[in-house]
Design a protein around this nucleic acid. Structure first.
Length: 497
RNA sequence: GGCCCCAUCGUCUAGAGGCCUAGGACACCGGCUUUUCACGCCGGCAACACGGGUUCGAAUCCCGUUGGGGUCACCA
């Protein structure tokens, strides 16, 4: 079978910058790396690329760790778990970069430069005017240490640039195919910034080599940069790893996924009540398909099915509706234990919700879940049943609901509530079953439809027309609160017609 | 703008020259179910960007056009 890949164990890495919570696009990159590591019996490494001191956000590494763990994408080597190539923060590996830069300087593969950003901008502007690609003008004579000293004294920025070889470079990409970039498109890029930190290109290449990374799976935005990395590897005597550049995930308009149209961080989806298995399944299908009609998989199934040659080359759009559908199914298919665990996790990341503040016992949480199997996200439980646990005077009445359910027909709904008060006062015991049974019997003797009875109650206790089953709702609410809310609406009569 | 990548329903995709009158899923529309909202079930609408080739035959191969994306940083 073709799915029984002969993939050799690969060493892959996920190397985010610590700027905040994990973005779903990054999660997708992490997932594919993780999948192939698991499938091949290789290793998945988590490295933090924090060489941009200005952009680093304190605590972001912790958030990334939390998000990755929530997804179930565990790493074999990296921050927090350690490994043979520790440390896994680039800011702690400066000696490695310094050694590499020194070697490049000594062998004539790199040189110092002192241009200010204004000068650089001016040169680019000129190139722009002449409509040609800007390429940094390599000096005929490379500055020596004395020049560096002089530049420093003059307060000029001192950077190190790599001598880009004058040859076309082909990337043998496992997704995009062979991509050749002409020598004329590449110039002497910076490998050490004025603040002494290595640039992404240098640190990334050095670390991948030292950590024994054999396969690099990353977003297509890096494809055009890869020739630089290949040249760097050649100059440093490193082997070039295999490359696989994935097409990107965009928003529904084909633009970059932005916070403006909804959650983009894994943590935000967690707070919105998505299950990691649903998110992962959905994300996996953005640019990958095992072929055929199947599209629902567990993580374990994905490991078995995954292969790079099934990756698409075209960008995909993040369709939130489809994700919601996946989540709906994941909730419906989850075992009671799994669902309870997921709900508890949701409560832990939504501590301010009424439902979390109610500190429900396990039996009640189970009951709530069992009776609301039609929710699409765990957060729906809050919007559906949150009012039960809110304070009585926090209930806001929906004017349209009041008008339609209570006032219509000369206040028939209010009249119904008046009658119901007496019924509820004598109802024993106050349980879901007894309440349902009593209401059912009441409807029969009064010869009215269920809707005529249940809807007024809903509006009275919730303010709107939506709630879980009426028996469960009132049982959870308790007799006292039920009656209090009914009496309150009878006195207030919130909307005048 | 230069360079690079891409192009099947609105969206994710199946499709590796005849199996395609193009399949599945989501969304949408209609119906059923129903104490509310949903869920669910059934049915329907809907695509090979365009133009040239190659071939007995093209969604599948080639070229061009158009469109989209990426990249040209002391960000990763």
């Amino acid at each position: 079978m073709s799915t029984m890949s002969t993939e050799q164990p690969v060493r892959v890495r996920f190397a985010p910058s610590p700027t905040g919570h994990l973005h779903v696009g990054s999660a997708r990159t992490a997932l594919f790396n993780w999948l192939i590591a698991r499938k091949s019996g290789g290793a998945f490494i988590l490295r933090i690329e924090d060489t941009d001191t200005a952009r680093n956000v304190a605590g972001a590494d912790r958030k990334i760790v939390e998000d990755l763990r929530w997804l179930g994408l565990h790493w074999d080597e990296g921050i927090e778990v350690g490994g043979p190539h520790a440390p896994y923060y680039q800011s702690q590996r400066m000696d490695l970069y310094e050694a590499a830069i020194a070697r490049l300087l000594e062998t004539g593969h790199a040189y110092y430069a002192f241009d200010t950003s204004d000068e650089l901008d001016a040169m680019r502007a000129v190139a722009q005017e002449r409509k040609c690609t800007f390429r940094y003008p390599r000096p005929e004579r490379f500055p020596d240490e004395a020049d560096v000293e002089r530049a420093r004294q003059q307060g000029l920025p001192v950077v190190v640039r790599f001598v880009m070889p004058e040859r076309d470079i082909t990337v043998n990409d496992e997704i995009m195919g062979d991509v050749t970039v002409a020598a004329t498109e590449l110039d002497d890029f910076i490998i050490r910034k004025a603040d002494g930190m290595p640039t992404y290109h240098l640190a990334n290449v050095v670390d991948d080599a030292h950590m024994g990374v054999t396969l690099v799976i990353r977003g297509q935005e890096f494809l055009a940069q890869t020739p630089r990395h290949i040249a760097l590897q050649a100059a440093l005597g490193y082997a070039t790893p295999r490359y696989a550049h994935m097409a990107l995930t965009m928003d529904m308009k084909g633009r970059k996924l932005s916070k403006r149209d909804g959650a983009v961080e894994v943590f935000a989806f967690r707070q919105e009540g998505y299950l990691p298995e649903a998110l992962l399944n959905f994300i996996a299908l953005l640019g990958w398909s095992p072929g055929g009609d199947r599209e629902r998989f567990t993580l374990d199934e994905m490991i078995g099915l995954f292969s790079l040659d099934r990756m698409n080359r075209m960008n995909s759009k993040f369709d939130r509706d489809k994700l919601l559908a996946f989540n709906t199914d994941a909730i419906r298919e989850a075992s009671p234990e799994r669902l309870l665990a997921a709900f508890d996790d949701w409560l832990s990341v939504n501590p301010d919700s009424p439902i979390a503040k109610a500190n429900l016992d396990t039996a009640t949480r189970r009951m709530l879940l069992a009776a609301n199997t039609s929710v699409r996200t765990l957060a729906d439980l809050e919007s559906r049943a949150g009012f039960i646990f809110a304070a009585d005077d926090a209930i806001a009445y929906d004017p349209a609901a009041v008008k339609k359910v209570l006032e219509k027909g000369d206040g028939a709904g209010y009249a119904m509530l008046e009658t119901l008060v007496a019924v509820f006062e004598g109802l024993e015991p106050w349980s879901e079953e007894a309440i349902d049974e009593t209401i059912r019997a009441f409807c029969e003797t009064q010869a009215v439809g269920m809707g005529k009875v249940a809807q007024p109650i809903r509006v009275a206790v919730s303010g709107g027309t939506v709630s879980p089953g009426i028996g469960q709702t009132l049982a959870l609410l308790g007799r006292e609160k039920t009656l209090r809310r009914i009496r309150r609406i009878l006195t207030e009569r919130p909307v005048q017609s």
